[in-house]
Simulated assay, not measured.
Amino acid sequence: MRFAPTAEQKQFAESLHDLLAGADTPAAVREWGEGRHEPGLKIWRDLADLGVPALLVPERDGGLGASAADLVVAFEVLGYHAVPGPLVESVAVAPRLAPRESLPALASGELLATVASPPLVPYALDADVAGLVLRVRDGGVERARSVAGPVRSVDAARRLFRVRAGEALGDAPGEAFELGLLAVSAQLAGAGRWLLEQASAYARQREQYGRAIGSFQAVKHLLADVATRLELARPLVHGAAVTMTACDVSAAKVAAGEAAYLAARTALQVHGAIGYTAEHDLGLWLTRVRALTGAWGGAAWHRARVLAGLDVRDG
């Protein structure tokens, strides 16, 4: 199986990148973490103009009826720019879980949604700003009755809330979880690419002993290892979008998470002490990757699911 983005997907990704490159997302992330949502919501409205919230909403309900592959293309860019908010929940998951009357508002970007699905997704992300809060339990989906929180996350911009179940809305298709997991994996791949680019650029600028540290063989090897891991993970994410099997989606999550985490560690090592400062943007991506690697199930859980999917037995 070989996945290659179409010309339309490449153009869509470029449009998203151009929009977000001028949006000052680091400032919006910092504001979001302090509970001031307007800068982030402004970005959300701009994304809605490009059709991001409408991707998985059926055409009959005002959406684009796009594919999981289109979703991955979008979330790689969103992860690269560390856009705050319940993007996975609103764009990837809610279109499969929300009542039909909510779908046009989701597609237009007027409605933000969030989802809790214990035990792997115990909290609802950004429930204080979402107009639709859902909970998946025992194969069904419910509208949340009340919300308490936030629960502290390693990423200050990920505000997590406890959710109590409420009105039953119907069955919860398993595809909703896979789409959410796929979107998180794409975010990790995009964030890892940003970290690699920043580390590479800094290595060309920072000097020791009169030479740019990027000229040292040890630093080249560190960056090359990251580039290799990211290049190996990306096809798994795109391939999982084509097959949409549990085994492939979990494999993509593990690979993207480990590659992004290596990128984060390497970027911090290359930057040195300045990478630890709160004022440096690097920390926003470091904490985002750290949070997302454990979100929607950790590596151990997903490895076990891959093993089960491969039907590996002793002997």
Rank of each mutant, 00 (worst) to 15 (best):
E31Y: 10
R100T: 10
V136D: 11
V29F: 09
A98I: 07
G22F: 13
A124L: 04
S15F: 00
E258P: 02
D128S: 08
D18W: 11
P84K: 03
A168H: 07
L97W: 01
T266K: 00
R305T: 09
A299P: 13
A27V: 05
V77S: 03
G139W: 06
G174L: 01
G139I: 04
E8Y: 02
G190M: 07
K10Y: 04
Q217M: 11
V93K: 05
L41Y: 02
A66L: 06
K253H: 14
Y80P: 07
A273R: 13
E101T: 11
R158A: 13
R229D: 15
A203Y: 07
G192Q: 10
G40D: 00
A105D: 14
V254A: 11
P58T: 08
E76G: 12
F161L: 05
L41N: 01
A28K: 01
L268E: 14
Y261A: 15
W296L: 15
D311V: 12
V184M: 04
G22R: 15
D281Q: 09
P58D: 08
K10P: 00
R60V: 09
H81F: 14
A264L: 07
A168K: 05
A201P: 00
R303I: 08
W296F: 15
L222V: 06
K10I: 04
P235E: 01
A107M: 07
A189T: 12
G190Q: 07
A156P: 13
D46S: 15
A113F: 12
R206P: 14
P99K: 08
G85H: 02
H238C: 01
F3S: 01
F75P: 00
K42R: 11
G51I: 04
Y276W: 08
L160H: 05
V52K: 09
L236W: 02
D46K: 13
A156R: 14
S90P: 06
A255G: 10
V121W: 05
P84Y: 04
S146R: 13
A183N: 03
R36K: 11
D314V: 13
D18V: 12
V72L: 04
R143S: 09
G275I: 03
R145K: 11
H280T: 02
W296D: 13
V242C: 11
R135A: 04
S153A: 10
P150T: 11
E167R: 12
V77W: 02
F12M: 07
A23F: 06
L268F: 10
S67I: 05
A241E: 07
K253P: 12
L232H: 13
R305V: 08
L20Q: 07
L132Q: 00
T114E: 03
Q269A: 09
G190C: 06
Q11H: 09
L112E: 02
V151T: 14
Q198E: 15
A23G: 09
V163Y: 04
A92M: 05
A233N: 04
A291K: 10
A233L: 03
I213G: 08
L132K: 01
A23L: 12
L230R: 05
A233V: 02
S117C: 02
V226Q: 06
A201M: 03
E178C: 10
Q217F: 12
A304G: 08
G140Q: 14
R206Y: 15
R211W: 12
D18L: 15
S215T: 14
R305F: 00
A157I: 01
A183D: 00
A278F: 11
W44C: 03
